[in-house]
């Protein structure tokens, strides 16, 4: 046995343990809910994870292409008056559609399940439901909010908020408590409309849900990270 043989064995062991550690970490991060699972269930979970990864990769690609398109549009429009005005129109339209990140004044509402659940009372009164979110969003738009997001999901014209067991789905993304609803609009008006006596937030607070609302001068909302569907609609002449 020469000396460098020992070094090579050490290196090989090093490579192997690095691999083992990475694998263990990966498996740990994915199988959070352990327990008895059937083979079929595992396979399904496997497929879901793979499909999700594929979707994320494709979405990243799409986003990259969109950015490229935008920069191309900008350079193309740089020395053309007509094109510049069209470019401005496009970015204005994207802002209204929720396809760009925006910031501005507004209010931030935080909703969380109540910590003090008494066993002899109905659990349902103490947790935040999809309908609660719907009601709050509705109230915000009614008070003149220009843009609203829930936990990073932008509310757009085709957003659906619905119940999915112990979580809420917004834009088909699963969200859980605590909910942070951000709204851009005239802060005093939004704040006043939501905290008015007999308003929905007060009703929720009476029920035991923990509610907090605050005005803010600097709120930034994410963009809608989905795709607008337009397979069936056509412009009416």
């Amino acid at each position: 046995m020469k000396r460098n043989h020992y070094i090579i064995i050490g290196i090989i062991c090093f490579v192997m343990t690095v691999g083992i550690c990475v694998q263990v970490k990966t498996v740990d991060s994915l199988n959070t809910n352990s327990g008895v699972q059937s083979m079929a269930e595992n396979k399904l979970r496997d497929n879901v994870l793979k499909a999700k990864e594929k979707y994320e990769a494709s979405y990243e690609k799409l986003e990259k292409s969109m950015n490229e398109l935008e920069s191309l549009r900008k350079t193309a429009a740089a020395d053309n008056n007509e094109a510049t005005s069209i470019e401005e129109k496009i970015s204005e339209a994207n802002k209204l559609l929720g396809l760009t990140e925006i910031k501005g004044k507004g209010v931030v509402i935080e909703l969380d399940d109540s910590k003090l659940v008494k066993s002899n009372e109905d659990m349902n009164d103490f947790i935040v439901h999809d309908l609660d979110l719907l009601e709050v969003v509705n109230e915000l738009f009614n008070a003149g909010a220009e843009a609203v997001s829930i936990n990073g999901q932008r509310i757009i014209s085709t957003t659906a908020i619905n119940c999915s067991g112990n979580i809420v789905k917004v834009n088909d993304e699963k969200l859980g408590v605590p909910f942070e609803i951000k709204a851009i609009g005239y802060p005093d008006k939004l704040y006043g409309a939501l905290t008015r006596p007999g308003g929905y937030l007060e009703l929720m607070e009476d029920d035991g849900v923990s509610v907090s609302i605050s005005k803010s001068d600097d709120i930034s909302l994410p963009k809608y990270n989905g795709v607008y569907q337009n397979d069936y609609m056509q412009v009416a002449e």
Binding site: I9, G10, T17, G19, Q23, K25, E53
Partner: peptide, 30 residues
């Protein structure tokens, strides 16, 4: 040789624990 093996393994654990996780599709291959 046992000393080098243990040394390599310890170093491997130290480095491996600080590396990011890999994507799920490749974990089967690893």
């Amino acid at each position: 040789f046992i000393v080098t093996i243990i040394l390599g393994c310890l170093l491997g654990v130290a480095v491996g624990m600080n590396l990011p996780t890999i994507s799920y599709s490749y974990s089967g291959y690893l």
